[in-house]
């Protein structure tokens, strides 16, 4: 696929001095504050954090759906002003067009670029073949399992040869076994296409297994709490998840996130009063008890 191979050494994402606030009747609510992240060309970077920390907000800003309140988002030095085919996106809710067959879904981006029918049919078939979906090209998405739908979603996002691929908890709705296979498929495609990936997840194992680097976010208002390089060798095997190196990384990230989750929850729980939950703190902090 020439149009895909062309994306080599492109896709440098930079987010600088980023903050984003929502207007509500009670005033502005800060979702993300004072955040800098970057993804080097061809790098696989994950963002993890407690739920509601604004990691999806950050990703949506990179995609161009949300405008930063302050700061700037650039890809290869160009400012992001709105959604574009240069930044492919995969959503948790699959988001396939139900009225298009699997192949028509994959062809959509190419059609938008004005590629002639026969050419885009061939391109879509090739891509579907890579994902083991050629037998389903004429099926409507409704007939597919969750894993297949998400494979189509990834293939569709990659079909136009974007510079970067953004994934918003793409495997969150899948069962554990399917998720592992999907992670392998995504890794394979990423290595083949040499594309930059920004991956949002709340699954720590997934983040470590897939990434070159992991950003850990704080509780709301979200900002970057830590940046953890993942020096694990590639290609990575499932068995690596038992290695001491992996487990050490996991322990480190786990404690970072737990701290933040407790901070996020702690506020609520203290406000409600511990008696209601039948938890006696006896002078310990909430983190010690849980």
């Amino acid at each position: 696929m020439s149009e895909i191979a062309a994306s080599t050494s492109k896709g440098h994402i930079e987010v600088k001095n980023f903050s984003l606030a929502y207007e509500t009747i009670e005033g502005a609510v800060q979702a993300v504050t004072d955040t800098q992240i970057h993804v080097k060309p061809g790098e696989f970077v994950s963002i993890v954090g407690p739920s509601g920390c604004g990691k999806s907000t950050l990703l949506n800003a990179v995609a161009g759906f949300l405008k930063p309140t302050t700061g700037i988002v650039t890809v290869d030095g160009e400012r992001v002003n709105g959604p574009s085919a240069e930044r492919g996106m995969v959503f948790q809710q699959y988001s396939l067009f139900p009225w298009k067959t699997v192949r028509e879904n994959v062809e959509f981006g190419l059609k938008m670029r004005g590629m002639p029918r026969s050419q885009r049919e061939r391109a879509a078939r090739t891509l579907l073949g890579l994902a083991g979906l050629e037998a389903f090209e004429k099926h409507y998405p409704e007939k597919l399992s969750g894993g297949m739908k998400q494979r189509v979603g990834i293939v569709r996002a990659l079909a136009t040869g974007p510079k970067v691929l953004l994934l918003d908890e793409p495997f969150g709705a899948l069962d554990a076994q399917t998720r592992v296979i999907m992670q392998q498929i995504l890794t394979n495609m990423w290595q083949r296409l040499k594309i930059s990936v920004l991956f949002v997840t709340h699954d720590i194992d997934e983040a470590i297994f897939l990434s070159d680097r992991v950003y850990c976010m704080t509780a709301r208002p979200g900002s970057i709490k830590a940046e953890i390089p993942i020096p694990l060798e590639r290609p990575r095997q499932q068995s690596m998840m038992m290695s001491s190196e992996f487990l050490a990384l996991r322990r480190g990230l786990m404690s970072l996130i737990r701290e933040e989750s407790l901070k996020a929850m702690g506020g609520e729980i203290n406000d409600m009063g511990m008696q209601g939950l039948n938890i006696e703190l006896h002078g310990h902090s909430l983190a010690d008890v849980i």
Partner: peptide, 22 residues
Amino acid sequence: DPVLVRAAQCLGARERSIFRDV
């Protein structure tokens, strides 16, 4: 579903195609 509109935008669809295809 607004997610479908977003998906189309990410694939390079402009107003007219979003109307016709989504």
